[in-house]
């Protein structure tokens, strides 16, 4: 086994939902930072508004690496052009659940669902497919979700 294979960098994609819930961008940047510290390379997938918010929040690109359109991401994993070790799906509405189910069905992997917003429990209850749920009532204040992420992320990176 070559040195390159032993130290193959892991990759994660953060699939952003509609940015109408304020905590999304902050948590995304925090998660990128946390994953980077664990040696995981990150890619952002989202619609134009979600991507732009992340890019404007990190103009020097200290945290944000590759950014891609959410439809292109779905297309590339469906056609097995791209593969990621971890799929973090940001969910605060029904559409987010649909995207998470789609990623899980296409990849067969256990996706990580970050569930937040006013109705986080109701949304979490809609998820019946294999999934690691990280859920908190976080709308404007990111701390409840950040704290949950801090608890679970070491396990996620080690076990998924």
């Amino acid at each position: 086994m070559t040195n390159e294979q032993v130290h193959k960098e892991k990759s994660a994609v953060l699939v952003l939902g509609c940015p109408q819930v304020p905590v999304q961008t902050g948590i995304a940047l925090y998660l990128i930072s946390a994953l980077r510290k664990k040696g995981v390379r990150t890619v952002i997938a989202g619609n134009r508004a979600a991507r732009t918010l992340v890019e404007v929040s990190d103009p020097e690109r200290h945290y944000v690496g590759e950014v891609m359109d959410i439809d292109r991401y779905i297309g590339e994993i469906a056609e097995t052009k791209r593969a990621f070790d971890y799929h973090f799906i940001f969910i605060h509405n029904d559409a987010g659940v649909s995207y998470a189910a789609t990623v899980q069905a296409i990849t067969g992997k256990t996706v990580v669902a970050l569930i937040y917003g006013e109705h986080f429990q109701e949304i979490a209850g809609m998820i019946t497919f294999p999934c690691e749920k990280i859920a908190a009532k976080a709308v404007h204040n990111p701390m409840p979700l950040k704290n949950k992420l801090d608890e679970v992320l070491p396990w996620v990176v080690s076990n998924l």
């Binding site: 469906a78 069905a105 497919f129």
Partner: peptide, 29 residues
């Protein structure tokens, strides 16, 4: 386009008319 949704996703027909769900992050389904 790759269809988005929770399986099973149903697609309906009325002759040549196709009825299907289409999901966008900000607008739901």
């Amino acid at each position: 386009k790759h269809i988005i949704g929770v399986p099973p996703i149903s697609i309906g027909f009325e002759g040549d008319v196709i009825i299907f769900p289409f999901t966008k992050p900000c607008y739901g389904t």
